[in-house]
Write a protein that binds this DNA or RNA. Structure first.
Lengths: 226, 226
DNA sequence: ATTAAAATAACGGACGTTCGTCCTTTTTTT
DNA sequence: AAAAAAAGGACGAACGTCCGTTATTTTAAT
């Protein structure tokens, strides 16, 4: 699997994401026509992620968002209850998609090695397709209200648990070396995160997403394969 | 070298750091008595890093800082020109220390392998000793004014260049395998950053700084050593 | 050693701005 | 014409900063 195949396989269009947000928040969105909602949610989320790649969500004002999205301040408040709820909206939807796609992709593999490769590729490809979203989640995590912060951490540990389980399975089947599993999973996660946190660097150096994924797989195989 | 040895070797006490800041900013600090300045700069920087581990610098108000540092708002403005200059003060001092310590530590090694090990250890140990500082720099980088942002990126690339040079030297001397150097240095940097960005995780899992450093060295040797 | 004077440090009220949000008015759609 | 959506003026709260005042420390004079 390469990135272009992944994108075809997984539908993560903005329309679909906004549609899901609408479903999950029907009662707090005051506008009734679904087309309108989806059209404007896309504008709002795009503008938010764009602004927040340059400054923090806290530092983004509703006036900034109004200017960037093309909607008036009043109109914005027809799509979310308040600024904090907008943040939660975006984060929770991102988590939902990420966990779902990752789980269903890994299920396609049979052997631990195959699963490990699939987990690495689908995580990197997913973060490529939703880069601003991943970046946003990472960077805003620490300034969240307590329960939202807890959910973010849970989601992170959940992802890492997936890696740990795969590696443990490989060790049990004597396909992988008996390495420190916690540390192996941790550094894997670190490498995966670097892709979406340092996109500017890899872009400048002309490293493609497929190159990067292959290299990370190579690193993990170097330390794990017998 | 283990962490406790490193700490003895490198003096990075708060007093010393504040003293250096005073030296470099004598004309913009209105308080004359050096003891007072150092005492209060420590309070100010500690409070800033503490608050900014929970919210962004932009979101921190001078009133927050006043409450946390124990100095009045008026007094604070005797130690820095304005809020933005406080940010620059902290960041530039952090860069200065990090670059200096890293360079002088690596110089102690002779072979590429020795240098690589020293580079990894000193980076991790340094970020352990100045964790809040490193975290702060990473997280605030994107909301900086243009030239300060440029300096942060330069510093990051400078660090990475050190790794690239060491690996290239190892390849030339046929001690290291002919790997993709850029990618090897990148994932190394990613692993190093994870230590100070995810301290909470490693703390919970009882991974010591020495354990982590050894594991990162192990990973790099796995992919590089012939 | 006391006291008076000067210098320095800290304080916190107040100002102009900008913030998130509300609410009435205008525009667009049906 | 009625209903829905968007607009943007208005408001109180909170912001960074300034600056007149008070408190403390140091110096000079007795």
């Amino acid at each position: 699997m390469i990135y272009s195949e992944f994108k075809k396989m997984v539908n993560i269009s903005k329309e679909e994401i906004s549609g899901q947000i609408l479903e999950r928040n029907r009662d707090s969105i005051k506008v009734k026509k679904e087309e309108k909602v989806i059209e404007n949610l896309i504008k709002i989320i795009d503008a938010t992620l764009d602004i927040c790649s340059k400054k923090s969500f806290q530092a983004m004002s509703i006036r900034d968002l109004s200017a960037a999205s093309g909607l008036s301040r009043g109109a914005l408040y027809s799509y979310f209850i308040n600024k904090e709820e907008l943040l939660i909206l975006i984060l929770s939807q991102g988590r939902e998609i990420a966990n779902r796609v990752l789980t269903q992709q890994i299920a396609r593999g049979s052997s631990p090695l195959e699963k490990l490769r699939l987990a690495i590729k689908s995580h990197i490809y997913l973060s490529e397709a939703m880069q601003t979203w991943f970046y946003f989640t990472y960077i805003e995590a620490r300034s969240l209200p307590r329960d939202e912060q807890k959910r973010t951490i849970e989601s992170e540990l959940y992802t890492e648990k997936i890696f740990i389980d795969i590696i443990n399975e490989g060790i049990a089947k004597k396909i992988f070396r008996n390495e420190n599993v916690i540390l192996a999973a941790s550094v894997l996660k670190a490498m995966l995160q670097d892709w979406y946190m340092k996109r500017w660097k890899y872009k400048n150096r002309k490293v493609s997403v497929d190159d990067y994924a292959d290299f990370v797989i190579h690193v993990m195989e170097s330390i794990l394969l017998i």
